[in-house]
Amino acid sequence: MGHPDLTNRLKVLRAERDWTQAELADRVGVSRKTINTIERGVFAPSAVLALKIARVFGVAVEEVFMLRNAQDMNGPAS
């Protein structure tokens, strides 16, 4: 269900706002278990859900979800 290349900063962003997983789940409109599995990398959310999560944090989606080896994907450094 998860994706090996995808990582996220959900836990950090939650902690900064002092939100529990349940509070975030309420704001996004999913179950707490879904937030928990996303946070642990067990479940990779759709683009729509990722955008919803980014919106409730008030940040760009790239600040919540990122690729593990993003530098490799941008090609060799010049």
Partner: peptide
């Protein structure tokens, strides 16, 4: 309903 059948549950059902 929406929370009980969110996209994770939908994906698990299909799988």
């Amino acid at each position: 309903r929406d929370r009980l059948n969110d996209e994770r549950i939908g994906q698990l059902r299909r799988e």
